[in-house]
Design a protein around this nucleic acid. Structure first.
Lengths: 154, 154
DNA sequence: GAAATTTAATCAGGGCACTGACTATTTCGC
DNA sequence: GCGAAATAGTCAGTGCCCTGATTAAATTTC
């Protein structure tokens, strides 16, 4: 009797959006390398030699998840993992030749996919859309490390 | 060298948005019942006696995933599952008293959470935001069952 | 300089999401 | 009516995502 309209719930819509993206990625970019995996490759192209935790921070993955993703990329031979001689806790990461090649190939396809994904929106709407998502998720991010209240500050 | 800026990639932003939502849900709504589980409860409040596949369709979950979610809700005693006497393949689903009570309680908290989640945006931006997400995911949905091209139709 | 704290990574455990293969039941075609 | 095709659900396998506990290495504190 008191059912709610989920199409006005941002969380539900966010989930559907991600599913839609997953589908399109699989058909237009790769069935082997996932979008989070590409994000990791990309982070290591930008900054080779990062440690695992920092890569996770760059792409928005927690320590457990980043460990799994990196282990899969290692198994595929796309990156190497070496103990930091300066700090025995860390692993330093860098792409292999194969990893670099894969990143180059997928970067092109990803750009095409993004175009198709956003094509239902006009150019101005696309810009706005990305900005709105960023603002909402950045704000919620502030909850993770407290001190920055989300709604009001006295 | 040829690294890409992920903050302009809708897929990456969609993932971050969902993570942000997950976090907020956990702190403001429930640590036991997840957002997809609430969506299933809600679908059964709206239409009691639906079968499993149709519930999945309503909330946007494939047959495998909906089976898991429903099994978990069943274990928690929030819904009942009966064979359809008319069609021996189907299971008919309905909420228990506990399921109804849980839905009522969470519906209130969910409304509050949505407000907080969207609070970084102005009222007009909020409406626009939801509409843009809907349009993008609806369009990509059309890829699932072909016949409706995503970009152009001749 | 040894004890206490912090930090990087792992592991166990739970949940979401998809594909592809399989079973059981119903419906369609003839 | 009976065999073929379609449909509902399950199961195995892979991957993402989180929390909480644990281990090992560094840093801080006294």
């Amino acid at each position: 009797m008191a059912a709610v309209d989920l199409t006005s719930h941002p969380g539900h819509l966010a989930r559907r959006l991600q599913q839609a993206h997953y589908l399109l990625w699989n058909t237009m970019v790769s069935e082997e390398i996932t979008s989070p995996q590409f994000a990791v490759l990309n982070a290591l192209v930008a900054e080779p030699g990062l440690d695992q935790r920092t890569v996770g921070e760059r792409v928005g993955l927690d320590r457990s998840t980043i460990a799994e993703v990196i282990s899969r990329l290692g198994r595929r031979g796309l990156l190497d993992k070496v103990r930091d001689p300066q700090d025995g806790r860390r692993f330093l990461l860098a792409l292999t030749e194969d990893g670099l090649r894969t990143h180059r190939k997928l970067a092109v396809r990803t750009a095409r996919m993004n175009q198709v994904f956003l094509s239902p929106l006009s150019a101005e709407e696309q810009t706005l859309f990305l900005e709105l998502i960023r603002r909402v998720s950045d704000a919620a991010e502030g909850l993770r490390n407290p001190g920055e209240p989300l709604v009001a500050r006295p």
